[in-house]
């Protein structure tokens, strides 16, 4: 469903992403893990067709993010780091607008809106203005926005940041259930989140993939925490030596 090969992004001399490759199958929840500044958001933005890569290729559902961006856009749901809400709209108005621009058929729109509001636990604020929502609600409206058109691939950039523990559990359950018939790519720096919801983990550091593995395989040998710390600190010591 997602095939990334040698994807790079550089700004002048600075390489934010240096040749990332990984893949995700249909129905898989992939955790994209890495310390701050590892290039997670930049990679995700390239996959969501917001930033063009400087090198490498990526395909989503068989379409290239550079040459067939429009086809990709029809098939992804994307939640950026900061939920992209219009403060002066109510939650329902906002979701209606999103449904329109994402091409949800007009006859299905209001049913879809009620469904996703129910699923993302925002039905109780349906008529509130987005600017009056708390951080947790904003995050969940952002999530509702990403799944309203039932996309094949869902890309989430730190979806649980700013949520309280109770909400985190609910959102993780939601993501897990989305993984049953969608492909989900989820970036995070919270290790337990990956163990809780993901089937596969991709660890990046300094713009490179350092580990790509099925979670079931991983936990047989070492805990995720061990793997993460080892892979991230190894890279650092190699760099320091060189």
């Amino acid at each position: 469903m997602i095939e990334v090969s040698g994807l790079s992004k550089s700004y002048g001399d600075y390489q934010a992403v240096a040749g990332i490759s990984f893949s995700a199958q249909k129905g898989e929840v992939v955790g994209f893990l890495g310390p701050n500044g590892a290039g997670k958001t930049t990679t995700i933005r390239m996959l969501a067709t917001y930033l063009p890569p400087t090198a490498g290729t990526a395909t989503i559902a068989g379409f290239s993010v550079t040459t067939q961006a429009d086809e990709v856009r029809r098939r992804i749901g994307y939640l950026p780091e900061n939920p992209p809400l219009y403060g002066e709209m109510t939650v329902r108005e906002y979701l209606k607008f999103i449904a329109e621009i994402k091409g949800v058929p007009r006859s299905a729109t209001s049913k879809r809106i009620e469904e996703v509001m129910e699923r993302c636990f925002v039905a109780d604020v349906a008529n509130k203005l987005c600017q009056h929502l708390s951080r947790g609600y904003r995050q969940r409206v952002g999530l509702a926005q990403a799944i309203i058109h039932d996309p094949e691939v869902i890309i989430l950039d730190e979806p649980t940041s700013g949520l309280d523990p109770n909400q985190i559990i609910k959102i993780r359950q939601l993501i897990k259930s989305l993984g049953e018939n969608h492909t989900v790519l989820l970036s995070t720096h919270i290790l337990p989140e990956v163990s809780a919801v993901c089937d596969k983990v991709v660890i990046v550091n300094r713009g490179r993939v350092v580990v790509e593995s099925q979670l079931s395989q991983l936990s047989r040998e070492k805990s995720l925490e061990q793997v993460f710390l080892e892979s991230v600190s190894q890279e650092d010591s190699v760099d320091a030596a060189a």
Binding site: R45, A48, T49, Y50, D70, R73, R74, I76, Y78, P80, N82, P84, L85, Y86, G87, I98, I101, K102, G103, Q145
Partner: peptide
């Protein structure tokens, strides 16, 4: 500034 531009650009809207 608000980041909604990212939403518009990544939607199937030209």
């Amino acid at each position: 500034r608000k980041g909604t531009f990212e939403l518009l650009i990544t939607s199937p809207v030209s």
